[in-house]
Design a protein around this nucleic acid. Structure first.
Lengths: 348, 348
DNA sequence: AGGTCGATTGTAAACGCTTACAAATTTGGC
DNA sequence: GCCAAATTTGTAAGCGTTTACAATCGACCT
């Protein structure tokens, strides 16, 4: 392989220029304690003048950090994940970290394989950001053993920093909006449950729906709970089922915007529409929701990704400290959701 | 930082178990020539038994490969890029490479900075996959100097492997579809030009449009060429302009599906619709196009990403060979586009 | 047989950094 | 001013590979 022709600037060059020893330069540049301000300044200046950046390979090999983190997502194409990934990548980049993208691509097999060789991953990255990953017991253990710093988005009851929204509350607010509009016959296009206790988005949203009904003295009719996954097609099929039942609900709460899109499509295919024949509300505020006039509970996706990334970096920075693991108990942050009224809902 | 508790399996362990020298094991495992089949077998067996995988850090430091590649994209959230990235990531993962995601996030500043320190990147990855990146002279030179293997999607006249579609041809086919439907007054919602000669998507599509008209003895009316960028909002604004001009064209060719979405939205806002008041065709076959019933020229996005990734890996594999750079002249592959008729177009 | 050449294998020196540990320097209490 | 303790700095030994280069081993010619 052809090599770059600029010979590498080594730490030794910085040491020479600054008149310090290699060791002192190394410590100074990594903000370690026990370095005089004077030395630190000289080292920094010399490094800057030479455009020095530590070789991540050498650094890693010698026991330092790799300067990169991995983002593990179920898929990279879905709207939610694409946005979260990009926001996190930006934070990582600004923090000087490379972002290794690992998409599970909804293919069975890649997650087990990945967690089966976590030690290998741990060797290449300093930490991982998990996006809505359903983890089994073994996997949690593997993660703990790997020595990786971890943070996540949209996960539940995990022993590391997490950022998410209050799914139950968001669903409750959505359903309440429908209720306050005067609707009484509500259906829910529910997401499917994962089984793993770390990701409870779907069940929480369903619970919020129930809560809202209960607030209004209503109970959930099992016939009005339709499994729709979280895809457009799933939403469409679910709505078709509702239409064909001949007993159209007055309003529909879709577990996420994509499901709502599918429902909207099914409606149109039957010559119906929202809000004329039925009110529809979703959760997400997907990029296209505005376009389709979908009323929805907006959740700050980019913020979730960025925030979680920040938390991970913080951990990483504190990882030099003595008290493991990474100083401080895990935190869980719930970001605000907000009702965005458009014209897929109306009073009755 | 807490460390994994399994002590690393080193090449030395493999050497000991197989009764070979470290050096021979290293060569055997990397498929280098001048190793007897017998030795190769022993090395492989021992490595398998021990679950040995070379440390990428050590490997890199010693002059080997990093085992990772970077994908550089203008953004990771747009439909096209998200899909291409995921498809490429899959290929890379299957090939044993880590994928480092670098999004330019449409922020001025990050591209110059990135190319200003390509040497740094070159140290962390073996190759880069460029997605529709508009490159200046200096940047091309920096890339050549970096020693990185390169491949790209949707680029033009570049000295490395590229995969794309024939933009002029796709546009021509789209416009031709409109013409064959009997439309004569055509407008184009054109993408904006980048200025850099490496990305010519917009201008090629515009040229294709002109070609189609010419085929039918028509010429392009400058008033019917509206700059719309490639965003939904841009498409909407462009269509508004057309509507407000009071002189509605008979059919509209949108430079990409997202532009078409915006146009559709503008129509709806004015109480108009396609194909009743005007026929609309796009290029892409965006995930939502089916939903919106948009007729469009479908392009294989995932295939482009995957194919380009494959080409990059091939180069990487051949990079051990003597004749630089990476054996063989650059190739350019144009993938097929296909008309997908839905109901945003009709005859007149 | 002796010598040569090619293929295979081994030895040992990088690669650029981190980090025990030792050395040098400063600080501060009397 | 002097000594112990605390702080700052330097020395040198790895980290796990790759790769010149040297060594070994047969095979093949003459």
């Amino acid at each position: 392989m052809p090599q770059a022709n600029t010979p590498r600037v080594r730490i030794q060059d910085v040491a020479a220029l600054s008149g310090l020893s290699i060791c002192t330069v190394s410590r100074a540049l990594r903000q370690l304690p026990n370095v005089s301000e004077h030395a630190r300044g000289r080292a920094r200046d010399a490094a800057a003048k030479l455009g020095y950046k530590a070789s991540s390979a050498a650094s890693r090999l010698a026991g330092g950090s790799t300067g990169s983190v991995a983002i593990i997502a179920p898929t990279a194409t879905a709207w939610f994940f694409a946005r979260a990934v990009e926001a996190a990548e930006e934070v990582f980049a600004d923090g000087g970290y490379d972002t290794v993208l690992i998409s599970l691509r909804n293919r069975s097999g890649v997650q087990p394989k990945l967690f089966g060789d976590l030690a290998g991953l741990a060797q290449r990255v300093d930490g991982v950001l998990l996006l809505n990953i359903a983890l089994g017991e073994t996997e949690m253990a593997a993660l703990a053993e790997s020595g990786l710093a971890v943070a996540s988005v949209g996960m539940h009851g995990v022993p590391w920093d997490n950022v998410g929204i209050d799914n139950a509350e968001a669903a409750r607010a959505a359903a309440t909006h429908l209720l306050e509009l005067g609707h009484r016959d509500l259906a829910i296009l529910a997401g499917s449950e994962t089984g793993a206790p770390t990701v409870v988005t779907a069940s929480e949203r369903r619970r919020g729906f129930e809560l809202a009904l209960a607030d209004h003295g209503l109970t959930v009719d099992p016939d009005r709970v339709i499994d729709a996954g979280s895809s457009i097609e799933g939403g469409r099929l679910a709505m078709v089922k509702l239409i064909e039942s001949g007993r159209m609900p007055s309003a529909v709460f879709a577990g996420c915007d994509e499901t709502a899109f599918g429902a909207l499509m099914a409606l149109r295919e039957s010559g119906l529409s929202a809000p004329e024949n039925v009110s529809i509300i979703g959760i997400d505020d997907h990029q296209m929701s505005w376009f389709l006039g979908l009323t929805t509970m907006a959740q700050p996706v980019a913020d979730q990704g960025a925030f979680a990334a920040t938390l991970l970096i913080d951990r990483l920075h504190r990882s030099g400290l003595p008290n493991p693991p990474f100083a401080g108990p895990p935190s869980n942050h719930l970001l605000e959701t907000k009702l965005v009224e458009r014209n897929s809902t109306r009073g009755r």
